[in-house]
């Protein structure tokens, strides 16, 4: 049956393909360690620990999941492989579920926020610009008018990169020269969007490592300057995390949240062998919903995040 309700067949295959390594090993190992046993013992939990940690879930979150399972097992006494599989899904979904408000989101925008302003932030090389290109395409396909702002004025050819995406998607782009003030670009973009009555504005920003205070302060400044045009902008601050990132994702979430009140996550590069398990812990700890996942370099390779789909794909079914 359709594992991936929101995904079309090709997409599902793609994500499954990427996640298949995890899927196989989880099923195999679960079957191997549980076989012939009527209950979950330490061996099973050890294997479980390995699976979760190898998926970048991280020690703390893994222990949390295992403790919850231990508790349930102690209560229910007998647990077989199938039940364990179900419990595992429930527990992980639970960690993601507690803050999922946008599940099944369909690129609709709140009517009272026009233009709806999205500011995209993240460390270097996570795929911010590519995500913006794909996001713009989604919004456009959903019938929205989109305007992009090239506020990564630092990295060589970042503006050109976004420009090519803008041409591809056929949406307007506001830009200045390389090296110009990103806040001023953001201001111009919002002013243009206001004049053009655009539905949604997406602002690209330069990649920055979260431990560089000056660069983090710059983000706060961009935000403040935007508010001069649209009082409550940005409505969405989207932190892009690379799906292959390890435990450092926690620090990224912590520091970017501190500087800009991140309220949405996008996880990229999930078409590779990386499992993106760190998302579970990040989402749980910071109570930030994952909104999008990136599963390729093509214009269509962005999907709304669905926790059931994510967990299903992670553990196979």
């Amino acid at each position: 049956m359709g594992i991936f309700g929101v995904f079309n067949k090709a997409k599902k295959d793609k994500l499954d393909q990427g996640l298949s390594k995890t899927k196989e090993s989880v099923l195999q190992k679960l079957a191997r360690v549980v076989v012939g046993k009527s209950r979950v013992d330490d061996d099973v939990l050890d294997e479980l620990e390995e699976m979760l940690i190898s998926s970048d879930v991280g020690v703390e979150t893994t222990l949390k999941i295992i403790q919850r399972i231990e508790k349930r097992v102690a209560r229910d006494k007998f647990v077989n492989a199938d039940e364990l599989d179900r419990i595992l899904r429930e527990e992980i979904s639970g960690l993601l579920a507690e803050n999922q408000v946008n599940e099944g989101l369909d690129f609709e925008l709140p009517a009272d926020k026009k233009p709806y302003v999205i500011m995209v932030v993240g460390v270097n090389g996570v795929g911010k610009t590519t995500t913006i290109g794909k996001l713009a395409h989604k919004f456009k396909t959903a019938g929205k008018s989109v305007m992009l702002g090239a506020a990564d004025t630092f990295r060589a050819a970042a503006i050109e990169q976004l420009e090519i995406w803008a041409q591809r998607v056929e949406v307007p782009l506001v830009k200045q020269k390389m090296g110009s003030d990103p806040a001023s670009v953001a201001y111009d973009t919002l002013a243009s969007a206001h004049a053009a009555d655009s539905d949604v504005v997406i602002i690209d920003t330069a990649g920055r490592l979260h431990n560089k205070v000056n660069l983090m302060n710059e983000l706060s400044k961009i935000k403040k300057v935007m508010q001069k045009v649209v009082g409550d902008a940005p409505h969405e601050i989207l932190l892009v995390l690379d799906g292959s990132t390890g435990q450092n994702a926690f620090e990224q979430a912590r520091q970017f949240t501190k500087a800009t009140e991140v309220n949405a996550l996008a996880i990229t590069k999930l078409d590779g062998t990386a499992k993106g398990g760190v998302v579970i812990g990040v989402s749980d700890q910071f109570q930030i919903p994952v909104k999008y996942i990136g599963i390729g370099e093509g214009i269509d390779d962005l999907e709304p995040f669905s926790r059931t789909a994510f967990v299903d794909s992670l553990f196979g079914k």
């Binding site: 690379d242 590779g272 990386a274």
Partner: peptide, 15 residues
């Protein structure tokens, strides 16, 4: 390779 890479680093490096 990105120094922030997690558990997948070994798979990718090996491939």
């Amino acid at each position: 390779v990105d120094s922030m890479t997690g558990q997948d680093a070994v798979n990718t490096a090996k491939e």
